[in-house]
Design a protein around this nucleic acid. Structure first.
Lengths: 216, 216
DNA sequence: TATTTTTTTAACCATTTGGTTAATTACTTT
DNA sequence: AAAGTAATTAACCAAATGGTTAAAAAAATA
């Protein structure tokens, strides 16, 4: 009865993901999604009513893929550097497989930040819990001014930025060679591991060189 | 004769920048640009022929704003940490004044990476020169596997990412408070300064903990 | 197998949107 | 001031696009 129905629905979602992720909500065309799914355009509306609804469906899907690692590991008893390493490795793999994702996600968040609030609720992860868990793992964190928030920004920045800036970086610094750039990305996860240990240590030391509050 | 002409042209460019930067090439509407400029839509075509041409004009403009700091300072005899500090401070200010810029730029680069090649040519800065200058300033760079490229990725990542991820971060970690987030951003430039000294030192040391090539 | 329900399609429709045109206004030049 | 040129506008146009509809095909039910 709905074995086929579920099947088409999946086909549509996959095609829609491809097109939306590549072109963005505004740039995507319903006709192109239908073509890539190999179905009639009217079916898109039959299953998802409107472009916006279809987009919402795939966007929540993608955000889930993003957050599930965090949700699955944040409650483990790993050390903070080990935990961060798990995240770094996951996102490095994930974004090499889905190069458009990071750029796409932030673009759509900027286009409609309110959508984020809805999605955070449906996710199995509360933002406050992340900070809380980090502070729990490293109680002395922030003693030097390097708060959990700064740490997250550092790790995510160093990890995600080379993916976001890939077309720029790869062209400018790596002759636009995919293989060279993949090697570059993978190198990074290794030294990021070392960096994180140092950072976590530094974050627990009072008033070292990293003291950031001098201006305030 | 063309004092007025130059004036309208500027008004158009400013309005176009606003709209394109907020909505992207696909999301922007010529009518909205005209409205914000307070002129008739036909004037846009009178001055710039097409949407694409208008976009090219403002995009090159914006990329110039981005690269001019690099071009102006890369040839100075500052130490590498001092030089990086100049960049970090500039981009931190620049993107607080223009919050949409980083997201916008990377979005459009992903949408059409080829446009980048054209623009790089017209810029007063060759990518090879940047790497070259860094190696010149710190000849021992890369001895530990931390190449100039990695350094650039680290510094830009930690600097730009909190701007790119702003709507996410600000909501999730700072109660969506503009002031709190501005403080957070400014704190970062201070400890990034300390970080860069450490990083440059680390990059010149052979086979320390940061050795990234173990897997290859 | 006949009938009812669900899925799929081709043909349409209304709106939006980038772009054009012909006329009007403003400005220069002589 | 008259004539000529450049800037500006209102009205229009064609193509693209999200969405609808009525009919056909397929599947489920009786």
């Amino acid at each position: 009865m709905n074995a086929l129905k579920k099947e088409t629905e999946k086909i549509i979602i996959e095609a829609a993901k491809e097109v939306f992720v590549e072109k963005g909500l505004q740039g995507a065309r319903m006709q192109e999604i239908a073509d890539r799914a190999g179905i009639n355009k009217a079916l898109l509306h039959y299953y998802f009513r409107s472009k916006d609804k279809l987009f919402d469906a795939i966007f929540e899907d993608i955000m889930s893929e993003m957050f599930v690692v965090v949700a699955k590991n944040i409650r483990s008893d790993m050390s903070l550097p080990d935990l961060l390493e798990v995240f770094v490795k996951f996102y490095n793999d994930f974004f090499q497989k889905n190069p458009f994702y990071p750029q796409f996600i932030f673009h759509e968040i900027w286009q409609n930040p309110d959508r984020l609030s809805e999605i955070m609720k449906s996710q199995q992860i509360a933002p406050a819990e992340i900070v809380e868990k980090i502070q729990q793992k490293v109680p002395a964190i922030g003693n030097s001014g390097l708060t959990a928030q700064h740490m997250i920004a550092n790790v995510l920045g160093m990890t995600l930025f080379p993916h976001i800036a890939r077309p720029l970086f790869q062209r400018v610094f790596f002759n636009n060679d995919d293989g060279e750039y993949a090697r570059f990305l993978n190198e990074r996860t290794d030294f990021l591991k070392a960096f994180m240990s140092v950072m976590v240590q530094g974050a627990t030391t009072l008033n070292d060189a990293g003291e950031p509050d001098e201006d305030f």
